[in-house]
């Protein structure tokens, strides 16, 4: 309706809708370096490629529908190798100081974080809230475990002396838990009104200053 009567008002409404309660001229602060963003998106893309090929290998209905198991196995394995190699390259060639700073922030939990995790989500938070830190820690640990168990499955098929009875089970459990975590992550980043502005930070690097103040009160963002 607004678009029909006044195109300008419509455009403003659209911007305001996208940005939540944005002031007319929003100021932005930098939240993620390029290295952090590349690391995130490479990991995300690899996760979905591995999930898709993995589910074809795992779910009987999909295995039957798709067939070509040897090919799907190769795709899954080499995607996994490529993923791990890419992460190592990003760490080696990227902004390691920024990554180290991020790791330090994720390592540190204070009393507000503890309360945040107990449900008091209004407690002031740093650049990462406690939930984001926990998600990052689990994701990092799972990356290690996915890689180790995946490699063991591949090696164990070639040398049966290196078989460990729980390898397949671990790989499966990691997948189930990851899918739940990613679903929550996607909900908060894409759907939930209060938090979805954070997607801009992961795509473009910067977020609105007022949003940062509200959601990450203890974070002192670098001056734009």
């Amino acid at each position: 309706m607004a678009e029909l009567s006044s195109p300008t008002a419509g455009a403003t409404a659209a911007v305001a809708g996208q940005a939540g309660v944005a002031p007319a001229r929003a100021r932005f602060v930098k939240r993620f370096t390029l290295t952090e963003r590349v690391l995130h998106w490479v990991h995300a893309a690899a996760f979905f490629a591995l999930l898709g090929s993995g589910l074809i290998l795992y779910l009987p209905a999909l295995s039957v529908a798709v067939g070509r198991r040897p090919l799907i196995k190769e795709i899954h394995f080499y995607t996994g190798l490529g993923w791990a190699g890419a992460l190592v390259l990003i760490v080696l060639l990227g902004n390691r100081r920024a990554l180290l700073r991020t790791a330090r922030e994720i390592d540190l939990f204070d009393r507000d974080d503890a309360r945040f995790l107990r449900g008091e989500t209004a407690r002031p938070q740093g650049r990462f809230n406690a939930g984001q830190k926990l998600n990052a820690i689990i994701t990092a640990a799972f990356a290690v475990l996915f890689f180790v168990s995946g490699l063991l499955l591949w090696v164990g098929e070639r040398n049966t002396d290196i078989r460990l009875g729980g390898t397949l089970y671990l790989h499966d459990v990691l997948m189930y838990v990851s899918v739940v975590l990613v679903a929550g992550h996607l909900y908060l980043a894409l759907i939930n009104r209060g938090t979805r502005h954070s997607l801009r930070g992961m795509v473009l690097g910067s977020v609105r200053e007022d949003w940062a103040r509200e959601h990450h009160a203890k974070w002192t963002p670098p001056r734009p």
Partner: peptide, 18 residues
């Protein structure tokens, strides 16, 4: 510690997962 805890639990699962 949380990171190492999750990795440790995963490694234990490799051996006792069955």
């Amino acid at each position: 510690a949380a990171f190492l805890g999750v990795v440790g639990a995963g490694v234990a699962t490799l051996f006792y997962g069955r």
